[in-house]
C-alpha cells in the first residue's frame, strides 16, 4: 500500500475555497455583510411607525442613487450566493462524513439554534425570494394591487392577510435563531475566541437576535392588530 500524495492545489484561492476552514471564513465574512444589512434594513422598516410619508420618503430616497443601490444589491447578492454555496459544500461534506448514522444520539452541549442552521438557512432563502417578489418586485400581490413607490400601502395590504404575516413572523423567528448562533460563531470561524470575551459575545448575539426579531415582527403584528400610524 503505497502512500500517495493527493490534492496538491497550486492555486491558493482555490485551495482556500476548497478547505472547510476557508468555507467557514467565507460564511463568516458574508455573514457580517448580511447581518449589517439585516440591521439597517430593520432600522429602515421601523420608519413605518413614523407614518406613511416618512416610510415612502425613505423608499424613494433609496432609489435616488441607483448606482449605489445596485452596488449594494450586488454586494448582497454575491454575499448570499457565497454564503449559500459554502454552506452547501459543508452540507455535502457532512453527509459524506457519516455514512452510517447512530441509532441513539443525544445532544448534551449545543444550542438548538446551532444544530438547526442547516434548515433555518434554506427556509430563510425561500422567504427572501418570496419577500423580494412581494415587496420589491411586486410580482406577488396578496391583499391587493402592488403600488410602486407606496411602501406604506404595500405593507399594510400585504400584512393584512393573516397567512402572509404568519409566514413573515415565522421566518423572522428563524432569522433570529440563525443570528443567535451565527453572530457569535462568525468570530469563532475567523479565529477569535477568548475565554473572557466569547461568553459576552454569545450574550450580545442573543440580544442582537432578539432586537432583530422584535424590530421586524413589530410591523406585521401592529398591522394585524389594527394599530397603524
Amino acid at each position: 500500500m503505497a502512500t500517495t500524495v493527493i490534492g496538491t492545489r497550486e492555486i491558493r484561492p482555490i485551495r482556500f475555497w476548497e478547505s472547510t476552514n476557508g468555507q467557514k471564513a467565507i460564511m463568516a465574512v458574508t455573514g457580517i455583510v448580511l447581518l449589517l444589512f439585516v440591521f439597517f434594513h430593520m432600522l429602515g422598516n421601523l420608519q413605518f411607525f413614523e407614518g406613511r410619508e416618512q416610510i415612502n420618503f425613505y423608499g424613494a430616497a433609496l432609489r435616488r442613487f441607483p448606482e449605489a443601490l445596485w452596488a449594494a444589491r450586488v454586494i448582497l447578492l454575491v454575499s448570499v450566493v457565497l454564503h449559500i454555496w459554502s454552506s452547501v459544500k459543508l452540507a455535502v461534506r457532512k453527509n459524506g462524513a457519516r455514512p452510517t448514522g447512530y441509532t441513539a444520539r443525544k445532544n448534551i452541549n449545543s444550542s438548538y439554534a446551532s444544530r438547526t442552521m442547516y434548515w433555518s438557512g434554506p427556509i430563510l432563502l425561500a422567504f427572501i425570494i418570496y419577500h423580494l417578489l412581494h415587496l420589491t418586485a411586486g410580482a406577488i400581490q396578496p391583499g391587493g394591487a402592488f403600488v410602486e413607490g407606496d411602501v406604506y400601502g404595500n405593507l399594510v395590504k400585504g400584512f393584512s392577510v393573516w397567512y402572509v404575516s404568519l409566514w413573515y413572523i415565522i421566518s423572522m423567528i428563524l432569522l433570529g435563531l440563525h443570528i443567535r448562533h451565527g453572530a457569535w460563531s462568525l468570530f469563532q470561524s475567523l479565529g477569535m475566541n477568548h475565554p473572557r470575551h466569547t461568553p459576552l459575545l454569545k450574550k450580545l448575539a442573543m440580544l442582537f437576535a432578539v432586537v432583530v426579531v422584535l424590530g421586524y415582527v413589530a410591523i406585521p403584528v401592529s398591522i394585524l392588530a389594527g394599530v397603524r400610524p
Binding site: L90, N109, S185
Partner: peptide, 19 residues
C-alpha cells in the same frame, strides 16, 4: 487542515458537542 480535509471528516460549524 489539508490532511484533515483529505480524510473525509466533516467541517466544523461551531456547534460545541465535541467539547
Amino acid at each position: 487542515v489539508a490532511q484533515m480535509n483529505a480524510e473525509g471528516f466533516g467541517g466544523c460549524t461551531n456547534i460545541g458537542e465535541c467539547t
